[in-house]
């Protein structure tokens, strides 16, 4: 039997218009929940991308006590040079660290410093990012050493934060997706109720079950798709924001930027989930409320 696309389009449009308030609610819920799903995916990929950058730049910083003796400095410098897992080190004098601090600290913080009270430092690149921890352990508490730091720890905290954030997004998104599904189910239920007369005539004159069901199915599908397209544009917008950040700063966020293909993939996932939610929502409504 030819299923007239024209007929289904017309019926779907009529149903959506008749139910427009519920439709808007369903579409918005789908959009918000899928935007969160998309954001979680972008975060995950961004963090993965940035990790490479972050680790490449990993350095261990050995800060010398401002009052350390030249012999203590010498011992440290020698030891660093001998360690097999340290690739290279550079020495930053008290004066050069003082100038660097001027750039990094606020004026009030900086005003408390003088070149004499600023610690000198060795900045070393380990062969493997994970070797940084060995360096930290080895030099911690040695005579003349103020403290040893590896920004790797910061990165770990950052990654943990991102992971937590990601799961929060996913959890909220799941709850919202569920309510989006229920909202779609309810709009379809209302559409079925509004058209119960038509449906009974259709059955009487011998319309096939698929012919009766399809307009309702496509109504749910359209709601899911429209919502997911809104969400996909939000994800794309997020991508643009990250991109513009990376052009004018070297912030951590900037390193998280995604490629066009990654955004395309994320949007594809978002749209597929939207279509799925719409289809499942209307299928459940049809099973429960449309007696064909």
């Amino acid at each position: 039997m030819p299923l007239s696309a024209d007929y289904i389009a017309r019926e779907t449009a009529t149903n959506l218009w008749r139910n427009r308030l519920m439709t808007v609610a369903a579409v918005l819920t789908v959009a918000v929940s899928l935007a969160l799903v998309g954001a979680a995916l972008v975060l995950k990929q961004g963090a993965a991308n940035a990790e490479v950058e972050w680790q490449r730049g990993t350095q261990v910083e050995v800060w010398m006590n401002p009052t350390s003796s030249p012999s203590e400095n010498h011992a440290i410098s020698n030891e660093l040079a001998q360690l097999p897992y340290v690739h290279a080190c550079s020495f930053h004098s008290q004066l050069s660290d003082y100038h660097e601090a001027q750039k990094l600290l606020t004026t009030s913080e900086f005003s408390a410093l003088t070149p004499k009270t600023t610690p000198a430092s060795y900045r070393c690149t380990p062969n493997q990012p994970q070797d940084a921890q060995f360096v930290v352990n080895r030099f911690k508490g040695q005579p003349g050493v103020l403290k040893v730091g590896a920004p790797l720890q910061q990165i770990h905290t950052m990654e943990e934060t991102i992971t937590v954030l990601q799961w929060v997004f996913v959890a909220v998104a799941l709850v919202l997706l569920l309510s989006a599904g229920v909202l779609i189910l309810n709009t379809i239920r209302m559409a079925i109720f509004a058209r119960r007369r038509e449906v009974s005539v259709m059955k009487l004159v011998g319309a096939t079950n698929w012919f009766i069901r399809l307009p309702f199915m496509s109504e749910g599908l359209v709601q899911g798709l429209v919502g997911s397209i809104v969400a996909a544009s939000v994800v794309f917008g997020l991508h643009e924001v990250l991109n513009s950040l990376s052009n004018n700063s070297t912030s951590v966020l900037a390193q998280m930027r995604l490629t066009g293909w990654e955004i395309f993939g994320t949007d594809a996932i978002v749209i597929v989930i939207g279509a799925l939610i719409g289809t499942v929502g209307s299928a459940v409504a049809i099973r429960r409320f449309l007696d064909v």
């Binding site: 030819p2 299923l3 005539v201 319309a207």
Partner: peptide
């Protein structure tokens, strides 16, 4: 017409 449309008559 509805009776014909819903059984897919052109």
């Amino acid at each position: 017409a509805f009776a014909l449309e819903v059984i897919g008559r052109p």
